[in-house]
Design a protein around this nucleic acid. Sequence first.
DNA 1: ATAAAAGAGGACTATTTTAGTCCTATTTGA
DNA 2: TCAAATAGGACTAAAATAGTCCTCTTTTAT
Lengths: 153, 153
Amino acid sequence: MLRISRLTDYGTLVLAHLPAREAELMSAAEVAAATGINLPTVSKLLKSLTKAKLVASGRGAQGGYRLARDAARISAAEIIDALEGPVSITECSATDSHCDLESVCSVGNAWQRINVAIRRALQEINLTELQRARAPVPRFELAGTPIHVERKG
Amino acid sequence: MLRISRLTDYGTLVLAHLPAREAELMSAAEVAAATGINLPTVSKLLKSLTKAKLVASGRGAQGGYRLARDAARISAAEIIDALEGPVSITECSATDSHCDLESVCSVGNAWQRINVAIRRALQEINLTELQRARAPVPRFELAGTPIHVERKG
DNA sequence: ATAAAAGAGGACTATTTTAGTCCTATTTGA
DNA sequence: TCAAATAGGACTAAAATAGTCCTCTTTTAT
Ligand code: FES
Ligand code: FES
């Protein structure tokens, strides 16, 4: 069902291996070695992430990449946006930016509202939580009924 | 990003037009006319939905389809499962697949838990809510912070 | 009986999306 | 000046999705 692409999964792994802000740069080749992902793919991912301002880069010899900001301030939603683009059934439902056709729009259906709801939840999950093997378990509440998600294993 | 396929969207529309349980059957051709979706596609959708036990069918002349149970007892998660299959949020975290990056990957499990959380939320949304033009807006709570999603328009 | 109306179940093609690779230009440090 | 890197695309390959079509079975009406 609602699936993120494999590249987004890889991208998260790449981000998890990058040095933090202020630390030294790490080259794409080093990231590829650390993650086990092929270099061309890592390179492509890092370029996309840099373009999205999630990663900062230094060019030339001794160049490389590092996180553009603290892992705690990089959300799952941002990672998805950077690597999959704000694609959705309709352009306006993809982002939080409000379309001024909303009031007269007939295609703003329930699925799109659900999509927005999920999206907002994803904005509350940051890279630090994604990195941790035992991150706090997300808990969703819907229509007054708390839904608790158990920790695995 | 996390998008549902077009067929799933169509499928929801088809379900919304089907007669309720105990009412008379409606043929695929009638559903196609009512929804504006091409007949072969409607037919395919109805077959998938029937196989998933979300709709009941009658064969032969005067045959057709109706909801297998009350709309309030058909969840969004079931509709997605019927039309897209029970795929996971990431390929790696699917139970039947084994990713060769697993040994170095620190994030697969986090995406999987997010997936479970989203699934559970989707199980709480039913067809009646999807049908309503102005359905109650889903509200998600994550890690103690309530996230309210405003009604559109 | 027979014919017609419908669904069941696949097979098939076409389209679109996604993944992965590669090439060339540019930047930087030694 | 050379070598190490990223930037930015172009390109191909692979996979998922959408859509169509064919044949078989079931049911009802004549
Ligand atoms: S066109 Fe913007 S809400 Fe539908
Ligand atoms: S388990 Fe496959 S990339 Fe994480």
